[in-house]
Design a protein around this nucleic acid. Sequence first.
DNA 1: AAATAATATTGCAATATTACGATAAATATA
DNA 2: TATATTTATCGTAATATTGCAATATTATTT
Lengths: 112, 112
Amino acid sequence: MGASKTDHFTDQQNRIAILCKALAHPARVAILEYLLKVNACICGDIVSELPLAQPTVSQHLRELKNAGLIQGEVEGNAICYCINEATVRNLEEYLSDVLNRLNNKEVNCCEF
Amino acid sequence: MGASKTDHFTDQQNRIAILCKALAHPARVAILEYLLKVNACICGDIVSELPLAQPTVSQHLRELKNAGLIQGEVEGNAICYCINEATVRNLEEYLSDVLNRLNNKEVNCCEF
DNA sequence: AAATAATATTGCAATATTACGATAAATATA
DNA sequence: TATATTTATCGTAATATTGCAATATTATTT
């Protein structure tokens, strides 16, 4: 095979997996951090910041955009990307909830 | 290609990418949630909970374990898995930090 | 309108992931 | 010790991801 059986999982499980997959490559984490660091965020800057060719960066940007983690805006003949806060928050809140539920458990059996 | 250029990124960027990759499949998110829900955490239970064959589940469990998100303990002739809280917290804190830095930015240019 | 600049898309090769049947390994029980 | 039970590993097919050169697209400038 090679394709995952998304039908059998809940919408939330699929959504979290999609968000995580978008961050499952160090280049895409680096893009996120770069967008965080700078106040201008033109695609060309990202290309020169990363050790990857322009088409590769463009592909990574598209994956981040498809997952809703960033959004792009046409700015002259360049494109300005920035972080979509709400989506990052979704993932953060999910993990926060996991930690809360974990702490409210009577036993987390293997944990010493 | 197909292999990512991990050398060119920071340790943190690689670590975050590894954690996210471990959660980049709905089955592995489902495993995490199942471990959260139950107080016993036997591998066989996970297999019967998921719509996947036993070797496939075993493979997903190994990936979660390799990323440090869960740990397994021999329990008779079964194996008891549970969530490694510290690792989940690492990821949650990273995202929390991203959100903080985002809110402290003067401008997040594209965000209306 | 032609040339320039910035980003996206296409096509393709190399590698990784996903899934599972068959089988092995490890432990428990009769 | 033989058998059953549980989980891991191997082998392999199908699909996905990664990376980039070549090229297309879009917008700007001359």
